[in-house]
Design a protein around this nucleic acid. Structure first.
Lengths: 111, 111
DNA sequence: TTATTGCGCAAGTAAATGCTTGCGTATATA
DNA sequence: TATATACGCAAGCATTTACTTGCGCAATAA
């Protein structure tokens, strides 16, 4: 777990995506973050470290607590990569909206 | 290499992102795809399989050849996920364009 | 001052990843 | 028909990943 870490790698893990989602709304310290998951505090702590290392969150130390703040600009690289292809499928097939609506409704059905 | 495979996972690997990029422009069979990489044909073949399994490319069998065609709509899920946060950082900090330009120029400098 | 709480640092483990080599099998070509 | 080509399957292997448990330490609360 020590190699080169990029943003794509970081968001590949569902737990980390969840962490991003939670922190995007409000800063949270590691422990309260960990409470929301089934895994150990250590596991979450490690995810936080990874997210921090690739610039998706930053840590604000406050006393003995460490607050995680979202650094969503870090997603720009992914956004950019997707964007170049978005043009493609938006032209080729109908509108993006239609697609999003479609996969959204599919998600709802199998839940 | 057998577990649940999602799109986020699929695009986490740089080789697979490259494959997507190549196939986006024109359909290619597995071997000509493999020639462009340093790894073995088998390795590429496996990447292709993974991409196919998560719907990012489709295979058109033509005789003994298998042509890979991009299915970029498969990226919609990622696009959607990014999109929700894009609003955030576009409001918080300046424009997205600025950011993209910035990371672009940074990329160019260290090349 | 003494608990208690928040959290990082290992060390250890099972599973997943990425890749390779060897082999088998259709589909073309000589 | 014999041979070459395009590929998939499967086994084996080194890393990486995601976690866990145990320990230690600094900041806060009793």
């Amino acid at each position: 777990m020590e190699a080169r870490r990029d943003v794509f790698q970081a968001i590949a893990d569902p737990t980390r995506r969840e962490i991003i989602g939670m922190v995007a709304h409000q800063s949270l310290n590691v422990n309260s973050l960990a409470e929301k998951f089934d895994v150990s505090r250590q596991a979450v702590s490690l995810h936080v470290k990874i997210l921090q290392e690739c610039g998706l969150i930053s840590i604000r130390q406050q006393g003995r607590e460490r607050y995680c703040e979202a650094r969503l600009e870090g997603l720009a690289e992914v956004s950019q990569w997707i964007e170049q292809y978005k043009q493609f499928w938006m032209n080729k097939f109908d509108s993006l909206d239609k697609y999003l609506t479609k996969i959204q409704s599919e998600k709802n059905t199998d839940k």
